[in-house]
Simulated scan of single mutants.
Amino acid sequence: MTSPDFDPETARLTALTTLRAWARQRDRMPEQRARLLATAWRAGEHNIRELARIADVSRQTVYEDLQSQGVDPKTDRGTAASRPRYAPLDHGQVSDLAEQMAAVLGPAMLTAEPEPLAEAAWFAHKAITFIAGLLDPDQPADEEQRRSRAAGFDEIACSADHMRRAAYQQWAAEFGPSELARYTEDTAINAAEIREALPTSTATITVELPDGVGSVVVTLATAAGTKSADPEGWTTWTSNATLPLSPITGEAHLEIQSLLAGLSTVITRQLHPDLLDLDVR
């Protein structure tokens, strides 16, 4: 969504769609307010005056909203706080949320180079949009719908990948290599201590070159000790290619460590429990 791609008709339709979502949201506000007031009551806030002040409504409205949710302020005042009640995701509300997010976030994307945090927020909106689509109860139950659902799940995962990369881009711009290496190393140690993801010493990846002309074997490792010119915990890589690899940037370090941690998490979950039990060694 960049300025060279601007289409006035698309912008007009998007604005109208967002306005429609606002109107639907407005109509649902009394019901949502009643649910929120009931949630606050069940969480232990039984002061009607305070509830009215926070919600910016009259005390009579608070009484009526609570009663609509099955709460009688006169007899339920001594009730102990309870856990919030489960409520499944609602397709309409999630769709409205996605459209409202588009209205708020869209202007920040009207540039050839959006800020990384704007990109992260925009792809969060895209993920919510696809989640709303998967919640649609009116989708036909046929093979085409199954393919559409598969694509929706894939798009959510891809949106999460874009969010991660955007966050790493901004993170690496604000922090130096030593800080990044220390953070990822501490995270890896903590994950290993709770047996969530065992540490990886090295990883080898074979990348097939285009047109079947060969392959490049890349070995990933982590700098350790004072012998390395890189900060301790920094990602290093070597390859068998005739041309050298580019230096590891902060963004690449964060991305590689994240991917290795994810792979280690999958593997660790599949290991036999005895391998994770220190008492059997």
Rank of each mutant, 00 (worst) to 15 (best):
P73R: 09
P231F: 05
A15H: 13
L271N: 09
A166M: 04
L19S: 13
E155C: 06
T75C: 02
Q60I: 03
R281S: 12
L110M: 13
Q25F: 05
Q32L: 09
D56G: 10
D72W: 04
T79D: 15
T249I: 07
G262H: 00
G214T: 09
L271P: 08
M109H: 11
R26L: 07
Y86R: 08
L66F: 03
R85G: 10
S159N: 02
A11L: 13
E64D: 15
L105A: 13
A167D: 01
D5R: 14
G225T: 11
T226W: 07
Q139L: 13
Q145N: 12
P88A: 00
A43V: 02
T226R: 15
A132T: 02
P107L: 06
P84Q: 08
W171L: 09
D5C: 06
A52L: 09
G106I: 04
Q170Y: 13
D72P: 08
T249K: 04
L51I: 11
H125A: 11
F6T: 15
F175M: 07
T200W: 09
P247E: 07
E232Y: 03
Q170K: 09
N47H: 13
L13P: 07
G250L: 04
R28F: 01
A203H: 10
I131T: 09
Q67E: 11
W171T: 10
L254K: 05
E113S: 13
D230R: 12
L209I: 07
T14R: 15
A150N: 04
D56M: 09
G262K: 01
Q60H: 09
E99G: 01
A98N: 10
A241E: 04
L220Q: 05
T219K: 10
L37Y: 03
W41G: 05
S95M: 06
L66E: 02
V266G: 08
N190C: 08
E64N: 14
T242D: 15
E113W: 09
E64M: 03
T75Y: 06
E45L: 11
A150K: 10
D5M: 11
Q170N: 11
D76R: 11
W122L: 00
A188W: 08
W22G: 03
D65S: 15
T75F: 01
R42Y: 00
T39Q: 14
E193P: 00
T2S: 14
I267Y: 12
E99S: 13
A157T: 15
E64Y: 02
L89R: 06
A261L: 12
